[in-house]
Design a protein around this nucleic acid. Structure first.
Lengths: 119, 119
DNA sequence: CTGTTAAGTACATAAAAATGTACTACGTCA
DNA sequence: TGACGTAGTACATTTTTATGTACTTAACAG
């Protein structure tokens, strides 16, 4: 998913005057090959970096880190680092992130309804 | 937004076994720089190609046509051609597309709530 | 006969996003 | 001393998306 604004959501980029400011903001936040799935996975409980990576399977480390950083920057996930060796980092939804759950749920429902018809 | 599968949603690409099949399907359907906004714009009524283009403003013809074709292929919008000259083409949501409205609405709500804090 | 119009198409190019490979840090275990 | 494991970083490269420019079609107005 390409962001409407390449680097974060720039209010100069999509002027507030534009009627579609709302969806544009949200879609920007969620644009990225894996973000929906990551959020979906964090929905039930906090997860370690390695768990997320294993769950997604095909994602590269660089990409995963990037997506997580963006989600963190956008305030939808928390990153908690445990000062241990080897390192342990746990990701969880913030309260803002929790508010995305209804959207994720509807999307899953929609996908289940229409996606599997193709089988 | 990058599609999880480059060319449509290939069930070989994301195996059904995967728990995240549902959201993956939906996010695939909606991945594209302008799709959410296009659907949002079609929400209230059918629109002509030129209206959509004018509304989006910055989109190129090629991109717009591509996004519309994908949405059509995925069955969320209808394309009605009037055999006139100059041509007239009207786009509208299909019933499947209508089912995306609640998602669009929630996203807009979320965006309005969190997006404008940045002002 | 020529210009105008809407909705495209075709193709080369640019920009953005994702990937692969290699490399790091640091305590612990043997 | 040296390998192990987690969560990264760096950077070059590939893949995917989006863009820009030019061209098309056919009826109608002048």
């Amino acid at each position: 998913m390409s962001r409407i604004c390449k680097d974060g959501f720039d209010k100069e980029c999509i002027k507030e005057q534009r009627e579609f400011y709302g969806i544009a903001y949200t879609q920007n936040l969620l644009s990225g090959r894996w973000k929906y799935v990551i959020l979906w996975f964090l929905k039930s409980k906090e997860r370690r970096y390695s768990e997320i990576k294993a769950f997604l399977g095909d994602i590269s480390q660089g990409s995963l880190t990037k997506q997580l950083r963006e989600l963190e920057t956008d305030g939808v996930i928390n990153r908690k680092v445990y000062p241990e060796v080897p390192p342990r980092v746990e990701y969880s939804l913030t309260s803002k992130g929790e508010e995305l759950i209804p959207i994720i749920d509807l999307m899953e429902e929609f996908g289940k309804k229409f996606g599997e018809q193709v089988d």
